[in-house]
Design a protein around this nucleic acid. Structure first.
Length: 428
DNA sequence: CCTTAGGGAGTCGCGTCCTA
DNA sequence: TAGGACGCGACTCCCTAAGG
């Protein structure tokens, strides 16, 4: 049994697909789903293998504290995704990057962390290149794409080793959909044609849909942690409701609690840590002041809120309570959670972080400019007498009328600065 | 309108052998 | 160990035609 290769993925990206079944969809393919979500593939649409590669890249990023820039070997990537290394497949891997760089996602409305956007558009990866001597791939993942996953309260830890075993594209796609729909329940029903649209699979008749789904379920039952029997309930010619049930491998129905054990855990920085809900709650409890931590009522409040709202939500409200509550910690915490007072605090913190980041950027830019100026002055100083004379003539010529009627000290400064401008122009 | 069956195009899976 | 070249058979997905 190989070790788990876990990655956090946003469940919205499982329900609404990032990749498609068919290689033969047209280039420039557009997919619209929820209100405000548009998917555009500018090149060939990504398929199963591309989705696996992207999962691997996401995993690598998450392993490196959600790094935007990752370096991977082609050989390692192919191995991790169950592809046998070789030239053809290496080219296919590069083709996968070409596909992802051409995928654009558009949203409007709420994105992550409850922030509202009128319009938000981004790619999955920004750029990539193949290093010459090492044959390593360097990939720059998109910041928004990463953050969407990183700060998601509605997410799951996926195991790349399970995904790669689902060789049937439909099996992998169906597994994604089932994961999402089995998040808080172990029975799920849907109209067959509706499911076909969700996948999406080419518009087909009921018999086609059932036939393919059965094959896909066979693989899911064989290779994943769950067993999913499907019953077909016809309600008219060519129409049926499909009922799915989630069983563990020993065929015992899973209770909600066990199911929730598989909810993604994120630490305060949004990094997945352990795939066990109790450890998550433990981490939240550790944020509670010492004197309240042992109280059963506090623990119950946090457990309930965690189940209902997710880790990030509870986390920010504990932080808020810690900094604002003066007496009756539990009552304050309950109100904070009910009204999500912590959201404001989080937004403030984010604004502060952003401000600091901008200040740092500005300072860096100023420093760079000063450095450049210093270099230019050194350069001018290093010129021969005649070259300096020539530069000065050029500066005076360019200044022209500006110098007329100006006293000497000022004109000297003006000429010197013009000379520096000219030298700078020449160097860049 | 729907099911069943068969075929084409393209992709995948995997083995074998080679190189540095 | 990391990677490359090549080839063949199996498989998937989609399309279409025949038949109910």
């Amino acid at each position: 049994m190989s070790r788990k290769k876990l990655l956090k993925q946003d469940l919205n990206f499982l329900e609404y697909p990032l990749w498609f079944q068919s290689e033969r969809l047209p280039e420039g393919f557009i997919w619209k789903d929820r209100d405000g979500f548009t998917y555009r593939a500018g090149y060939k649409p990504p398929v199963r293998i591309d989705a696996l590669y992207l999962s691997y890249f996401l995993m690598e990023s998450q392993k490196n504290s959600w790094a935007q820039h990752i370096v991977v070997s082609q050989w390692g990537t192919m191995k991790a995704c169950g592809v046998s290394p070789g030239k053809t497949n290496a080219l296919r891997l590069q083709n996968a990057l070409e596909r992802w760089i051409n995928v654009t996602l558009s949203f409007h409305g709420t994105f992550y962390d409850g922030r509202e956007y009128r319009k938000l558009q981004f790619n999955v990866i920004n750029d990539w290149y193949l290093q010459k001597p090492s044959h390593h791939l360097e990939i720059d993942l998109n910041k928004f794409f990463l953050e969407k996953v990183r700060y998601s309260n509605f997410s799951k830890l996926l195991d790349l080793n399970i995904l790669r075993r689902l060789k049937l594209p439909l099996a992998m796609r169906l597994y994604e959909i089932l994961l999402k729909n089995f998040m808080y329940r172990d029975e799920w029903s849907i109209d067959a044609h509706k499911l076909a649209g969700k996948i999406p699979m080419a518009k087909v008749y009921l018999s086609h849909i059932i036939e393919r789904l059965k094959k896909a379920l066979d693989q899911i039952n064989k290779h994943t942690e769950m067993t999913v029997p499907m019953t077909v309930e016809p309600y008219g010619r060519g129409k049926a409701i499909l009922h799915f049930k989630k069983l563990m491998k020993d065929r015992v129905a899973i209770s909600d609690k066990q199911d929730n054990d598989r909810i993604t855990i994120v630490n305060p920085h949004g990094v997945p840590v352990r795939d066990h809900v109790t450890s998550d709650i433990q981490e939240l409890l550790e944020l509670v002041p010492h004197e309240h931590r042992a109280k059963v009522t506090i623990r119950n409040t946090i457990e309930y809120a965690h189940k209902k709202y997710g880790t990030q939500y509870v986390l920010r409200n504990i932080k808020y309570t810690n900094s604002h509550c003066k007496k009756n910690y539990r009552a304050f915490l309950v109100s904070a959670i009910e009204n999500d007072w912590g959201l404001e605090l989080q937004e403030d913190e984010e604004a502060k972080r952003k401000r600091l980041l901008e200040q740092a950027k500005k300072a860096k830019k100023e420093e760079q400019e000063i450095n450049k100026l210093r270099q230019v002055r050194d350069y001018i100083r290093g010129l021969s007498e005649s070259e300096q004379q020539e530069l000065m003539r050029q500066a005076i010529a360019e200044l022209g009328e500006e110098l007329e009627g100006m006293n000497e000290p000022f004109s000297k400064i003006l000429i010197r600065s013009k000379m520096e401008q000219i030298a700078l122009r020449g160097s860049s």
